[in-house]
């Protein structure tokens, strides 16, 4: 698994980093920490506040392991060629992590586009980013980034709203295709948080959809076969929206957003933004 952590210098990113560390400790995923800023700082590429934050994230991440347990320990020294200016390269001694890949990247430009591009180019399975808690779900200085990343990413996205234990996962599905990758991401979250799983089949107002029942049964069987404690129910979209606004401070809201059948979905892309914004707790958008 490869995880991309997209962070800025604000406190919500520090909360999200803790969730990243929890994920990394259990999955030993390859990790990229990405800083994004609108334009190059002068004289260096990174603005001082972001630079400090990235240094802090790197150190916090790497120091989270005790002794020799870390798969990310920087033990692999090697010479590599780096471009200095056009036509000139310099050989530098660099130290890389031993067992699993750990990198810190910086991209300059539109934050949302930069995060999505990084995830695509690196082949990430999950993007983790923080955002303001409560009903806003914003990034300071670039408010729409979390919701747009959640809506437009090709892979799953975990939006961490604040630091809190997760005791239950509310996973919502409609009639869309459910990928193997999304089932696996949810498995990992259930395992890491030792959380209960409730799967909710979401139907349009006043309507009943056979496909939703079919999906609900398929998903129920999948988790039941793997010994996971699961309960299932059906809810209308509007009821779901209302309930996530008021309930579940310790719930992780997980939304199945398949890559296919976007036009025929009950959760069109704008719904993702609404549910993400309304949720009181962290949100996992699964693809």
């Amino acid at each position: 698994m490869r995880i991309l952590f997209a962070g800025d210098e604000h406190p919500y990113s520090a909360f999200a980093l803790k969730e990243l560390i929890r994920l990394a400790m259990n999955t030993w995923a390859d990790i990229t920490i990405l800083g994004v800023q609108a334009a190059s700082a002068s004289p260096g590429p990174v603005a001082p506040a972001l630079n400090l934050a990235l240094n802090r994230y790197r150190e916090t991440f790497l120091n989270s392991w005790e002794g020799e347990d870390s798969p990310y320990a920087l033990t692999n020294w090697q010479f590599e060629w780096y471009p200095v200016k056009e036509g000139l390269w310099e050989e530098r001694l660099v130290c890389k992590s031993g067992r699993k890949d750990f990198r810190v990247h910086l991209r300059i430009g539109n934050p949302e586009a930069a995060i999505l591009r990084e995830a695509r180019e690196e082949g990430c399975d999950l993007i983790v980013l923080g955002c303001a808690s409560g009903g806003d779900c914003l990034w300071t200085g670039a408010p729409a980034v979390p919701q747009r990343v959640a809506s437009d990413a090709d892979c799953s996205v975990l939006l961490v709203k604040e630091e809190q234990p997760i005791s239950r996962i509310l996973a919502c599905l409609d009639q869309t295709y459910i990928s193997q990758e999304s089932l696996e991401i949810l498995n990992q979250m259930i395992t890491i948080h030792k959380a209960q799983l409730e799967v909710i089949g979401v139907i349009p107002q006043g309507g009943v959809k056979k496909e939703v029942y079919t999906r609900l049964i398929e998903v129920g069987d999948y988790y039941h076969d793997r010994g996971i404690d699961i309960s299932t129910r059906i809810a209308e979209v509007a009821d779901l929206e209302a309930s996530i606004t008021t309930d579940g401070k310790q719930d992780l809201l997980a939304l199945w957003m398949g890559k296919k059948s976007i036009l025929s979905r009950f959760f069109p892309r704008e719904w993702v933004g609404r549910l993400v914004a309304r949720s009181q707790s962290s949100v996992l958008v699964m693809r």
């Binding site: 400790m25 259990n26 030993w28």
Partner: peptide, 22 residues
């Protein structure tokens, strides 16, 4: 279903690498 314990135990048993799904 990755956990820190299974990762550590795998390496103790001499596995070459440990990959979490997906």
């Amino acid at each position: 279903f990755a956990t820190m314990e299974t990762a550590k135990e795998s390496f103790k048993k001499g596995v070459f690498d440990f990959i979490a799904k997906p």
